[in-house]
Design a protein around this nucleic acid. Structure first.
Lengths: 199, 199
DNA sequence: CGACTTCTTGAACGGCCAGTCAAGAAGTCG
DNA sequence: CGACTTCTTGACTGGCCGTTCAAGAAGTCG
C-alpha cells in the first residue's frame, strides 16, 4: 500500500542531522523550538508532526549521534596494534575542535552533555545514556582483551576496568574541552593514560 | 561606622550553601527562582537584594563550591606516599553517591555541570570553570612532582600531563556517575589509572 | 521621637516558551 | 473529478520564567 496524502517537503533525516548539530552546540534547554524553526527552515507544525515534541526530537538526535559514533568506534578499534587506534579515538574531541573552531561549534560529546543536563531527571534520557556508556565500555573492553592476549596491553588490570577508565577519560576530555582546549596538554594527557596501559 | 537599616533576617552564607545544593542537584536552568524561594524560605525580593539576579547567584554558588573543594584537595594531597591519597580524591564522587543516595542528591561535580550547561555561552562562567581546572591541575601536578622525585610515581610523563589526565578522569567519573554508578567498576577504573602512574 | 536606611513581602509585568489548531495546499486513489 | 489523507503555515494560547517595585516593617542615629 503506497503512502497517500501530501508528501513531506523536507528531508526528515537531513533535518534531524541539522537539529542534532544545533542541540549539540547549544544544549537542550538553550535550544528553543523557534531556534530550530529558524535554523532548519521548517515550520513549527511540521516539526511537531515529524518528530513529536521537543524532548522526543532531542532524544532521537542523541540516539542518532550515538549510532554514528558507535559505528566509527567499532571500525576504528578493529585493528592491531590497538594502542595507536585507541589514542586516535580518545583524541577525537581534540580534532573535532580543530575542524569546527569557527562557528556554531558542536562541543563535547552529546551523550555527555545529555548526562549533565537531563539525567537523572529524565528516565528515557538516562536509559539512552546508560546504554551508550555500556556499549562503549563493551566495545573497548573487547578490543583490550585481544590486545592483552597479544601482550600489547598490560594485564595488570581487567579489560573492563581499563575500558571504564578510558570512558571516564574521554568523557572528561570532551567536557573540559568545552571551556577551551590546550591541545598540547590534552594530547599529553591522553598519552600518559595510554602509556599506562602498555604491557 | 555600624551598619544601619533593617537587619537581614536570614543567614546569607547558609542560604547560599542551601542554594548551592539545589543548583547542584538540579542544574542551573532547571532550578527556578520559585524553587529557590520555596526551598530556602526566603522571598524573591530578598534573594534579589542579597545575591543579585539568578546568574550571579549561581556563579557565586559555583565559586563557593570550588573554594571548599580546593581546600579539601590541598589538604588531602599534602602527604606521602601520594597515591593512596590521590585514589581517595579521585573516588570522591563514589563516596558522595554513597552518602546522599536518598533525596535531593547532588550529582557530579558542580564545576563540570557548569561546563556542560553554561560554557561556552557565558564568559564569566567560562572564566570560573577554566580557573578551577587550572588550579586543580596545578595542585595535582605539584604533588606528582614531589612523588616523582620520591620515585613513587613514574617519570615516564611530565607531572602536568599526568595531572591533566587525572582531571579528565575525575570529571569523567563525576559526569558518568550521574547516570548511575557501578561502584565496583568505578573503583577498578580509578585503580587502573593510578596503577598506570606507579613507578 | 523623627529621619534615615535597609530588608521583607508578595503582587504585578512583560517576555518567551512549548505546544495546539484551523484553514488551506498537495498529493493518492477510485 | 471528487473523496480522502497527510503536510504546511502561522496565528494563537496558557503557563512559567526572571525580574521589578511599592508599601510596610525593623533596625540605627541624633
Amino acid at each position: 500500500m503506497a503512502r497517500t496524502g501530501r508528501p513531506r517537503e523536507f528531508d526528515r533525516e537531513q533535518t534531524l542531522e541539522r537539529a542534532l548539530e544545533l542541540f549539540w552546540s547549544r544544549g537542550y534547554g538553550a535550544t528553543s523550538i523557534q531556534d530550530l524553526v529558524d535554523a532548519l527552515a521548517v515550520e513549527r507544525g511540521s516539526l511537531y508532526g515529524a518528530f513529536g515534541d521537543k524532548r522526543r526530537f532531542y532524544l532521537e538526535a542523541v540516539r542518532l549521534y550515538w549510532e554514528v559514533y558507535e559505528r566509527h568506534l567499532i571500525a576504528a578499534l578493529d585493528t592491531s596494534p590497538l594502542l595507536p587506534a585507541l589514542r586516535e579515538i580518545l583524541t577525537h574531541p581534540v580534532r573535532l575542535d580543530e575542524l569546527v573552531s569557527d562557528v556554531g561549534v558542536p562541543q563535547g560529546c552529546l551523550v555527555g552533555n545529555t548526562t549533565a543536563e537531563l539525567v537523572p531527571q529524565d528516565g528515557e534520557a538516562t536509559e539512552i545514556v546508560t546504554r551508550s556508556y555500556r556499549r562503549f565500555t563493551g566495545i573497548v573492553a573487547d578490543a583490550l582483551r585481544r590486545a592483552q592476549a597479544a601482550k600489547e596491553v598490560t594485564d595488570g588490570a581487567r579489560p573492563e576496568a581499563q575500558a571504564q577508565m578510558l570512558l571516564y577519560l574521554v568523557q572528561g576530555l570532551s567536557l573540559v574541552s568545552r571551556a577551551g582546549l590546550d591541545r598540547t596538554a590534552a594530547l599529553a594527557a591522553v598519552d600518559a593514560a595510554v602509556d599506562g596501559l602498555r604491557a
